[in-house]
Design a protein around this nucleic acid. Structure first.
Length: 653
DNA sequence: TCTAGAATGATTATGTCG
DNA sequence: CGACATAATCATTCTAGA
């Protein structure tokens, strides 16, 4: 399984664009030879396309270390590289129940104790991280032992340079010439050579599958194996991911790092790695370096106009594409998120989803509001058809009664993206006052101000000199939901805006799903992750595709209630299963579900965007953000489904 | 304490002008 | 081509009032 940056080359029909005069072939996916980066990566196991047997082991056996749970948990953290003394102290303080808290405290402690440690201890520490003693001594002398950050940075730079040089001398070292795995930091003498442990990498083995899943969650094979070793051979995937989650909670993990798998290195064991916290710090640093490095070459270019593979009534249509082998179903999958994410995010998303090229579509081609989103899916793209009747496509069609209040100088025909918050009453009042001050045509300055605010807050004219935010039911209509879909059942107005703002645009998604209608005349089994208010379910239902078994995973209770209520209102004949948290959806649970009704036909999910969207002033942290990192759970679950389904199938055959 | 409302820029991409 | 302007954006935090 190669993680290549080269997406399949598309043939775009060049036609005259009747709209904005832009070029239609703005895609830039054929980066095949652009990226000969001096690095080679471990070939990931080919488990994706292979059956993988039993899903998850139960951890019936106690660990080899002692009988009391207390000593077991202490051993656990000692295995991560913390001193037994410190662990015992923290466990006593925090209790042994909450491993998240313990880990957090341990990381804090070890960070705070380090600066006071002796010179030799410091050197030892960095050597333990995999740098050569010689290099560490030199760098510590250069930087002084006070600033561990700059020491680390310098070490990273040095080892990157070394690696680059050494790899360039060995160009024949693998079949990954078109791969860019982007690591600047490869000289980890403490990473095991995996050739010596073939059975671990075998997808048919338990360890191989766990490893695969962990790598998909954002860890390199080497790191995943470290985690597995530290958590014990009997640990379930759930436990392993819990471990990772704990690290993430401790603000220490970037789920972004699987892309930089370490090269094979000789000899020494990863047991040398002593401190998990520094390990993670290391990866942070690496991210920075990498970002600086590869920003230019690899940008995902958004199409203009943003019509993806095509939208109804537009001339440029792409009707076939070649999907990477690993991406092929079953099941079909469909992933959605904001198009205007921070740089590099979509490259990562695509890479994690089998290098499928994202389809960027603005929902303004389907309704009266913009909604720029990227969709990564393995659905066919020929013979799509839209939901009929078409929803209103302009503001005036959507709100005919407001037309008489619309001033001539507000020339908007489409609304901007429907968000989760609305304008304050104070703002609309301010606008009214500003307009009332001038009779007749307001001065250009006022016009400009008002228009700017109207665009920013999606205001509509509801009276003379009077603008207002959209009502929740108007948002429902624009997004293609049935009226009052989110109304009642104890949900507040604020929460309605929030739930709607986080949802799919039904017509857009339905257009993509429409190709499934012929394929599943008897209905489909759907796994709906981050299902929210049920955009996927509603879209399929509107298309007339029966819903047989739906498993919907959604964290917010109000949203689960909305979906459940819709399910009953529409007299669905299938079964709806809700699950609260994607993180509790493990292999066992999935296997059980899949056994019950024979597999999922479609896996859909739009993972949290709040760390990606420009609206977020505070924590636009990218895919490593607290919530947006749940993207990796989408990958994890999709992989599990693939594995279990392929395994089941081959067992039947 | 709880909640709804109000206040709070930055990161991208793209267009314009010299 | 580069400096500058324009434009869009599935949100979080603070705070006043119940």
């Amino acid at each position: 399984m190669l993680r290549s940056f080269s997406w399949p080359i598309l043939q775009v029909k060049k036609m005259v664009d009747n709209n904005s005069g832009g070029e239609a072939d703005n895609f830039d996916w054929d980066t095949e030879d652009d990226l000969e980066i001096d690095n080679y990566a471990i070939s990931a196991p080919s488990g994706l396309s292979t059956p993988c047997g039993e899903a998850v082991l139960g951890s019936a056996e106690a660990g080899s270390s002692g009988n009391s749970p207390n000593s077991k948990i202490i051993d656990h953290f000692v295995g991560m590289g913390f001193s037994r003394e410190m662990v015992a102290k923290v466990v006593e303080e925090k209790g042994e129940e909450n491993s998240d808290l313990i880990l957090e405290a341990l990381l804090e402690y070890s960070a705070s104790t380090l600066p006071s440690s002796s010179n030799s201890k410091l050197i030892d520490h960095f050597v333990g991280m995999g740098f050569s003693e010689e290099m560490v001594v030199k760098v510590v002398q250069e930087n002084g032992e006070g600033n561990t950050d700059s020491i680390l940075e310098t070490l990273l730079t040095y080892s990157a340079l070394e690696t680059t040089a050494s790899v360039q001398q060995n160009p024949d070292s693998g079949n990954c010439s078109s791969d860019y795995e982007g690591s600047l930091l490869n000289d980890f003498s403490d990473f095991d050579s995996f050739s010596e442990s073939e059975e671990i990498m075998s997808p048919s083995s338990e360890e191989g599958r766990k490893l695969l899943h962990l790598t998909k969650m954002g860890y390199s094979e080497a790191e995943a194996s470290v985690v597995m070793e530290r958590c014990g051979p009997d640990s379930t995937i759930e436990e392993l991911t819990d471990f990772i989650r704990a690290a993430q909670i401790a603000k220490a993990a970037d789920a972004l790092f699987p892309l930089e798998d370490k090269p094979f290195s000789n000899g020494s064991s990863h047991k040398k790695r002593r401190n998990w916290g520094y390990d993670l710090l290391l990866r942070k640093k690496k991210l920075k370096l990498e970002k600086r490095f590869d920003e230019d070459d690899d940008a995902v270019h958004l199409p203009n106009p943003m019509i993806g593979f095509g939208v109804p009534n537009e001339p440029d249509q792409i009707t076939n594409r070649v999907l990477p082998e690993a991406a092929l179903g079953p099941p079909y999958f469909y992933y959605e998120n904001v198009a205007l994410a921070p740089k590099g995010v979509w490259t990562t998303i695509s890479r994690f989803l089998y290098d499928v090229e994202p389809e960027f579509v603005d929902s303004k081609f389907f309704c009266a509001a913009a909604r720029k989103r990227g969709y990564v899916h393995n659905l066919p793209i020929d013979n799509r058809f839209p939901l009929l009747p078409f929803p209103p496509r302009t503001i005036h069609e959507a709100f005919p009664l407001t037309r008489k209040w619309w001033p001539s100088w507000d020339t908007r025909t489409k609304l901007n993206c429907l968000q989760t918050c609305i304008a304050s009453a104070r703002l609309t009042d301010k606008i009214r006052k500003a307009l009332e001050d001038s009779d007749g045509e307001p001065p250009l300055g006022i016009q400009k101000f008002v228009l700017e605010q109207c665009r920013k807050w999606n205001l509509v004219w509801v009276g003379r000199n009077k603008v207002a935010p959209l009502e929740p039911d108007e948002v429902e209509m624009l997004l293609g939901f049935p009226r009052n879909h989110t109304r009642g059942g104890g949900i507040s107005r604020t929460d309605r805006y929030k739930s709607l703002g986080n949802s799919f645009q039904i017509d857009t998604v339905a257009y993509h799903f429409s190709v499934l209608k012929d394929k599943f005349p008897g209905g489909i089994n759907l796994l709906s992750l981050f299902s929210g208010i049920g955009g996927a379910e509603v879209a399929l239902h509107q298309l007339g595709i029966p819903l047989k078994n739906v498993v919907a995973v959604e964290i917010a209770e109000v949203n689960r209630n909305i979906l459940r209520s819709w399910w009953e209102q529409t007299n669905q004949r299938g079964t709806l299963t809700d699950i609260q948290d994607v993180q509790e959806l493990n292999g066992d649970r999935l296997e059980q579900l899949i056994k019950n009704f024979g597999g999922f036909d479609l896996v859909v999910g739009g993972s949290p965007c709040n760390n990606l969207t420009g609206s977020n002033r505070y924590h636009r942290d990218g895919l490593e953000g607290k919530d947006s990192a749940l993207f990796f759970d989408f990958c994890r679950i999709l992989d599990l489904v693939k594995c279990i389904m392929n395994g089941t199938k081959s067992m039947i055959v």
